[in-house]
Amino acid sequence: MLQYAIRRILGALPIAFITITVCFIIMRAAPGGPFDGERPLPPVVLANVRAYYHLDKSLIEQYFIYVGGVLRGDFGPSMSSYDHSVSELLAIGLPYTLTLGFSAFVIATFIGIVAGMVAAVNQNRWPDYLLVLVVMIGVIIPNFLMASILQLVFGVYLQWLPAGGWRAGEITSLVLPVTVLAWPHAARISRLMRGSMIEVLGTNYIRTARSKGIGQRLILARHAIKPALIPVVSYLGPGLSYLLTGSLVVEQVFGLPGIGRYFINAALNRDYGLVLGTTILYVILILILNLIVDMIYAWLDPKVRYR
């Protein structure tokens, strides 16, 4: 297990490295520098500023400085907000994004697994059909539309929940964003879980367990869940990046101050430093979470460890 973990970590390092390199190249290939304003700066000031940001060095040197900075958690200056460095901005936004994403991920995974199991056990009866409907809604309606609809219904017309804002992390202000984020994720998971559960329930060893007179609940808990979870867990990795894509929209629509919002605003303002810093942070986050998912996968399916 430990060996497998080390192998996966070594496999993930090049991806992080390639991402940083590609980001750096794109940033430097982009037309226009951060100090090309309407009014040209006096040459002395410009030289000073360029020296401060290492722009007077060769590209290779700049690259090593940037990589070194990233390794120490320093993503360089932000070009749109002069008072903060990219790292400071990310540090401000990260807790919000993590709270939002983590709640949505946990809730969606749990609901998806349970719903898929219930549907599989009640195959072709009303819980199953209900699930198909709910899944369809989650997969078909794009998250930005869903966000607007829920906002209007619960925030504006019924006034049950706040239509936006963070409000110091009150649970009510999290309900709608988490719902929007979690719904499609839960939908995909429940569909996978239903399929694999039906398959597992049809296997010989489950029939053997039944013939020994073991009750339904014990069969599900002891024998069926673990193998049925394998396809679900293998989806969690790609599912994370779906969730992240969703959080870009959700933060924007509900006005939450997370890094997704920084990313979009930075993209609209052409703040290259912030865009690339956010991207690298996202990629590193996803790689770490994927490693965790891989560990769970290896625990569930012993075959994986020895591949």
Partner: peptide, 17 residues
């Protein structure tokens, strides 16, 4: 590897630049 990456970000970067 690509599966795990949030490629939508890369599209956004391309579009921005």
């Amino acid at each position: 590897m690509m599966y795990a990456l949030p490629y939508i970000l890369f599209v956004i970067i391309l579009v921005v630049i």
